[in-house]
């Protein structure tokens, strides 16, 4: 019982560190990315990593409100990615 709880605590710490490392790597790609598609992809991945940070924080604190936050972040990330890609493709978002 105690070993399971200790394993869960260690896994929680690892899962809090891993998306932060991913955010830093995506930020590097966002800065050096040669093309516009790379930058949009880096922003999309950063949204997904932020979503996973919110989910792990919700597991850590045991608060249900983080579920709504995660759903909103997911929807906002999808809409912003599609809007950016569409702006590059068509020069306009809603025509």
């Amino acid at each position: 019982m105690t070993t399971a709880a200790e394993l869960f605590d260690i896994a929680l710490i690892v899962a809090l560190i891993a998306p932060a490392v991913g955010q830093v790597l995506c930020m590097i790609r966002l800065v050096i990315g040669p093309t516009t598609g790379d930058r949009i992809l880096a922003l999309d991945t950063m949204v997904i990593n932020a979503l996973s940070l919110v989910v792990v924080l919700g597991i850590h604190q045991g608060v249900t409100v983080y579920f709504e936050v995660a759903l909103l972040v997911a929807m906002l990330g999808f809409v912003s990615t599609v809007a950016l890609a569409r702006f590059i493709l068509r020069g306009d978002i809603i025509e």
Partner: peptide
């Protein structure tokens, strides 16, 4: 305890995959 161990394993696998995805992007 079974659910706790399974949640810990899922957390580890998920964090490994997220880091692999970001490293691949870079």
């Amino acid at each position: 305890s079974v659910a706790t161990v399974a949640a810990a394993l899922s957390l580890l696998i998920g964090s490994i995959f997220i880091v692999i995805g970001s490293v691949g992007l870079l």
